[in-house]
Lab assay of single mutants.
Amino acid sequence: SKTSNTIRVFLPNKQRTVVNVRNGMSLHDCLMKALKVRG
């Protein structure tokens, strides 16, 4: 089974995003990807 960790990230202006960290990806990469999608 694939394991994925879901991390809630609290952003300024009362924004919130959820990042799924996959195996083999660093938290930083996942964060940058999530913020790019939002931006």
Rank of each mutant, 00 (worst) to 15 (best):
S1C: 12
S1G: 13
S1T: 14
S1P: 15
S1L: 12
S1I: 09
K2Q: 15
K2M: 13
K2T: 07
K2N: 13
K2E: 08
T3N: 09
T3A: 15
T3S: 08
S4N: 12
S4G: 10
N5V: 07
N5H: 08
N5T: 10
N5G: 05
N5I: 08
N5D: 11
T6R: 14
T6A: 08
T6P: 06
T6L: 04
T6V: 13
I7M: 07
I7P: 03
I7S: 01
I7L: 10
R8C: 07
R8H: 04
R8S: 04
V9M: 02
V9L: 02
V9A: 13
F10I: 02
F10H: 08
F10C: 04
F10V: 02
F10S: 11
L11V: 02
L11P: 00
L11M: 06
L11R: 01
P12S: 01
P12R: 02
P12M: 05
P12L: 01
N13T: 09
N13G: 04
N13H: 05
N13K: 07
K14N: 14
K14W: 05
K14Q: 07
K14R: 08
K14T: 06
K14M: 08
Q15R: 00
R16C: 07
R16H: 13
R16P: 01
R16S: 04
R16L: 04
T17S: 11
T17I: 01
T17A: 04
T17R: 05
V18F: 03
V18G: 03
V18L: 03
V18E: 03
V18T: 03
V18A: 08
V19L: 08
V19G: 01
V19T: 04
V19D: 01
N20T: 11
V21E: 00
V21G: 14
V21S: 07
R22L: 14
R22F: 03
R22S: 08
R22N: 15
N23C: 14
N23H: 10
N23I: 08
N23Y: 12
N23T: 07
G24R: 12
G24A: 08
G24Y: 05
G24S: 15
G24V: 15
M25T: 13
M25L: 12
M25I: 11
M25K: 14
S26N: 12
S26C: 11
S26I: 15
L27K: 03
L27R: 01
L27P: 00
L27M: 12
H28Q: 14
H28L: 12
H28R: 10
H28D: 11
H28Y: 13
H28C: 10
D29A: 10
D29H: 13
D29V: 09
D29N: 13
C30G: 11
C30S: 11
C30F: 04
L31V: 07
L31P: 00
M32A: 09
M32K: 09
M32V: 10
K33D: 03
K33E: 01
K33G: 02
K33M: 05
K33I: 01
K33N: 03
A34P: 10
L35R: 00
L35V: 06
K36N: 15
K36R: 12
K36I: 09
V37M: 13
V37W: 13
V37E: 00
V37G: 03
R38S: 02
R38C: 00
R38H: 00
G39D: 14
G39V: 04
G39A: 07
